[in-house]
Amino acid sequence: MAISTSIWIWISALLTLAIYSFLYKDNPFYKFAEYLLVGISIGYGISVYWHNTIITKVYNPLVHDKDFLVIIPLLLGLLMFSRFFKNYSHLSRIPIAFIVGAGTGLSIPSSFEFLFKQVQGTMPTAFTIGNLIIIIGVITTLIYFFFSMEHKGFIGKVSRVGITFIMIAFGAAFGYTIMARISLFIGRIQFLLSDWLGIIK
């Protein structure tokens, strides 16, 4: 494999290097790449919203299907813009009330079910060391988060076990995070060495 001839690969390779140049020192190349990223993601987001929301969910139903019920949510949505006018900004609370109300209503039962699933999953179906550790971990961690009891005596000892479990979990999460960051770096190095420079297959 040889060095790439595609202009797009060159652009992405140079932008990658521009971002990494920050590791040495803040510089104009880095700034340029960063602003470019922010601008492009907003632009891309708007174009996707335009096509998939405004066109398919508002324009098409209204103009082609003559479904005038769409006007109600549309008006509610437009009320969000009242925030720009000081005297009418309170109107934006109406759509927010709808979103919060429906959102809470939808999520509370599901959250409960989700919690029960987790409780159910914690129950041991076989008596193994692993299951025992899980159940001790869950109970002691819950006790650590008791706020209406002083952490003294027995409760104090149990909650100390709880915080130990929490710290072990943090340690595992930290290790995984290092792994993830390295993976992201590997992804880029692979792109630079293989797609761009063609050094490796």
Binding site: K117, Q118, Q120, G121, T122, A172, A173, Y176, M179, A180
Partner: peptide, 17 residues
């Protein structure tokens, strides 16, 4: 999932979700 979230999602594996 990404490795960052893997530790967190192990609990859904164990619960059978």
């Amino acid at each position: 999932t990404t490795a960052v979230s893997a530790a967190e999602y192990y609990s859904y594996l164990q619960s059978g979700q």
